[in-house]
Design a protein around this nucleic acid. Structure first.
Length: 539
DNA sequence: CTAGGGTTAG
């Protein structure tokens, strides 16, 4: 502790010389997601006197109070403050779940001893907040069922089904669907089965997804065009357009088809770079009496974009004009984006000009893309101008727009801008998602902003954004590169404790760094953990 | 749920 104060004093002094306005932040020390025992070993930066790699212990003055405000309601950090009475149910519930009970049953037990009461709003939020964290999610879900006067809505059941599918617990997922079916109250709908088919497809279980579709009537769901499109879309998007096509062949005579059915296939073939098959499907579409529409053509444009065959793109625009099919904002976005990415910024801007002269109105996604390519081309000023301009044209920035702006601010290490944008989102009630936070987290790791990193983690939590495997990987890698190995290890452990399987590259990097720093004990811990990972975590 | 999210770095 002594070292910490000494270090901080020196550090503050150092910074006050440079900028007297900078206020140090004395809080937000521990990773808010780890257990109490882990947190004690965490803040290595306090103990270490590594002045070559210090944490930057400040935030931008204009943002300090905002950052500060996040500490107040954070249960982990408010232990000695009498904030208990200001805690809402969601805080109290989260606090219990942070104990990281090993099984849902133990979560249920813990909750039975609490005086919390289940409401639909509370359960909805907690499932969102823990959507990548099976054990607490299932625990709360199970507990809530036992509460008198409470009944899960079909939507909540569907969320739970989705969470189980995301966690690859297909056995439990099916159990739950059967349970829903037993309620005999129309709980199982196409929405439920859609999630199931999507999750199975995402897990590479294509045949199971198709089987789920075949068995739809067992759950009282009709195998109509919508259901079939849903399945085909899931298969095509999850990299098996072949399965989608098989489904099409098998069911085309007993299910009514629509334009969407063909567009899903065309899109799938194009994405899989199988142009002939896409063209064949287009012919088949016409034979069935459907006219290719803007979606069909746009899929082809996207394919040629991928191939960087820009001459072909012009040809398709031409063909669309001949057929009287007007391109829309999506079409222009795709073409412009591809040109911009291929460093043909002027040609990209020509697409923008063409769009305007064609009388097509840009939307938020289009503007996001425009901002992206301008930033990529180093034209930050123009990008900012567009960002301001879109509002004047009555188009409000959406998550993607903000995410784009934040990404580039982070890339250029404009920390203040990046955080201000996040703050602006909050003011605009625009909810950030994982992709919004990713560049911010990365930047914090790189610049060793441990306080800001912590603030962001709390910010995410409060916004019900659940950390997924990709984000853990980002954190572990980023912290490794910055020499924050204890913290990297703690995130690694946390990831594994949530039943996620770390990528080999992440694991290797961590072990290698631990080796370099001769942290043998920690290395052994990680290796042991990894060896236990493969057999799927039992819940 | 028919198309627009732009890398995991070195």
């Amino acid at each position: 502790m002594l070292a910490k104060h000494k270090f901080l004093r020196l550090f503050r002094y150092h910074h006050s010389q440079k900028n007297p306005n900078i206020k140090p932040l004395r809080h937000l020390i521990c990773n808010p997601f780890c257990t109490a025992t882990e947190s004690q070993e965490l803040p290595s930066w306090i103990k270490s006197s590594d002045t070559k790699n210090p944490d930057e212990d400040f935030v931008i003055p204009s943002l300090a109070s905002w950052v500060e405000s996040y500490k107040l309601h954070e249960p982990r950090l408010a232990i000695n403050i009498s904030s208990e009475k200001t805690d809402t149910d969601i805080d109290r519930l989260s606090k219990i779940l942070k104990n990281r009970y090993p099984s849902p049953d133990e979560v249920v037990q813990a909750l039975d001893g609490s005086c919390l009461s289940a409401t639909t709003g509370l359960i909805e939020q907690i499932l969102r907040r823990f959507s990548n964290d099976l054990v607490p999610a299932l625990g709360v879900f199970t507990w809530a069922k036992t509460q008198t006067g409470y009944r899960h809505t079909p939507e909540i059941y569907n969320s739970m089904v989705d969470i189980l599918g995301k966690g690859k617990r297909f056995d439990l997922m099916w159990d739950l669907v059967r349970e829903m079916d037993d309620l005999n109250d129309g709980y199982v709908t196409l929405a439920t089965m859609g999630k199931i088919m999507r999750r199975l497809a995402r897990g590479g279980k294509y045949d199971d997804a198709v089987e789920a579709f075949r068995g739809l009537d067992k759950f009282g769901v009709t195998r109509d065009a919508m259901a079939m499109n849903l399945l085909m879309d899931a298969l095509a998007k999850e990299k098996s357009v072949e399965h989608a096509y098989e489904v099409f062949c098998e069911f085309k005579d007993c299910t009514p088809l629509n334009t969407g059915t063909f567009n899903i296939l065309i899109y799938g073939w194009c994405k899989a770079r199988k142009l002939e098959d896409a063209e064949r499907t287009m012919d088949e579409m016409k034979k069935h009496g459907f006219v290719p529409d803007v979606v069909s053509y746009t899929s082809f444009i996207e394919h040629y974009c991928h191939e960087k065959d820009f001459r072909k793109i012009d040809e398709i625009f031409q063909e669309m004009q001949e057929k009287g099919c007007k391109p829309n904002a999506v079409t222009y976005t795709i073409a412009m984006h591809a040109l911009g990415k291929a460093k043909q910024i002027n040609e990209a801007l020509e697409v923008y000009a063409k769009m305007k002269s064609d009388g097509c109105l840009p939307d938020a996604k289009f503007y996001s893309s425009l901002i992206f390519i301008l930033s990529k081309a180093g034209r930050t000023k123009d990008a900012n101008e567009i960002f301001e301009d879109m509002k004047k044209h009555g188009v409000m920035p959406d998550v993607l727009t903000y995410t784009t702006m934040i990404s580039f601010a982070c890339e250029h290490s404009r920390e203040e801008d990046a955080l201000k944008l996040l703050q602006k989102m909050e003011e605009d009630s625009c909810k950030p998602n994982l992709k919004t936070y990713a560049p911010l987290l990365k930047m914090c790791c790189k610049k060793r902003r441990m306080k800001v990193l912590n603030f962001l983690l709390i910010h995410m939590f409060r916004n019900d954004v659940s950390i997924d495997a990709g984000t853990y990987a980002l954190l572990v890698r980023g912290l490794c590169m910055s020499g924050k190995l204890e913290l990297a290890c703690s995130f690694f452990k946390e990831m594994v404790s949530k039943g996620m399987v770390p990528m080999n590259a992440t694991y290797k990097m961590l072990v290698e760094e631990l080796n370099k720093k001769s942290m043998g004990e920690a290395k052994e811990q990680i290796e042991k953990l990894m060896s236990q990972v493969k057999p799927q975590e039992s819940v």
